[in-house]
């Protein structure tokens, strides 16, 4: 999987860590620091670079640990508590390490009438997760329901980490999981 960095270039993911207790090394050095510096030129306040900065942390670490919030807070001259308040507002920032393949399936009404719940059930079964929001025993998968992904005509859309996948059906679930590895 690849991510876009905040300036739009493709790059492969950093050493995304899934270990809650891994020692934290600062994100904003070298290229990531330069990326943030460029972003700061776009806004009249440092605070405005908060969402992009948090995205950079998440791309590098796989989630946004408290130390990452503190690092961002120091650079943008905010308090860690303020940053945490913002992080907790947005559903896409992970405050915990997540499974290798974090699967988010839209089940809002337009997808729901087209069978999204069946896709969720197939995923829960075939990943071994069994329950929504529970990581599979092998640590590889977690499945959650999300609200409209803005692709309602392509039933069923879902996201695996930052990868958008359209038109998933019960029948195509095995192939999808196989492609994730």
């Amino acid at each position: 999987m690849t991510n876009n960095n905040e300036m739009g270039e493709m790059r492969s993911p950093g050493d995304a860590s899934h270990d809650l207790h891994a020692t934290y090394t600062p994100v904003f050095t070298g290229a990531r620091k330069a990326e943030l510096d460029e972003l700061l030129t776009r806004y009249p306040t440092k605070m405005a670079a908060l969402l992009p900065a948090l995205w950079i942390v998440q791309h590098e670490r796989g989630w946004v640990p408290a130390e990452g919030m503190a690092e961002v807070a120091a650079i943008l001259e905010l308090t860690p508590a303020y940053v945490k308040g913002v992080v907790s507002f947005y559903t896409m920032y992970h405050q915990h390490p997540v499974a290798t393949h974090f699967i988010q399936v839209c089940t809002t009404s337009p997808c729901n009438v087209c069978g999204a719940e069946d896709v969720v059930n197939a995923l829960l079964k075939q990943t071994g997760c069994e329950e929504l929001g529970v990581t599979s025993p092998d640590g590889k998968y977690a499945v959650i329901e999300v609200e409209c992904l803005g692709a309602c005509g392509f039933n069923t859309p879902l996201m695996v980490n930052e990868q958008f996948i359209e038109s998933v059906t019960v029948e195509s679930v095995p192939a999808l999981l196989a492609s994730l590895g």
Binding site: E6, L51, L54, Y90, M92, Y93
Partner: peptide, 8 residues
């Protein structure tokens, strides 16, 4: 371009 983070 400014990227949101999931909030209708």
């Amino acid at each position: 371009v400014h990227k949101g983070a999931g909030a209708y």
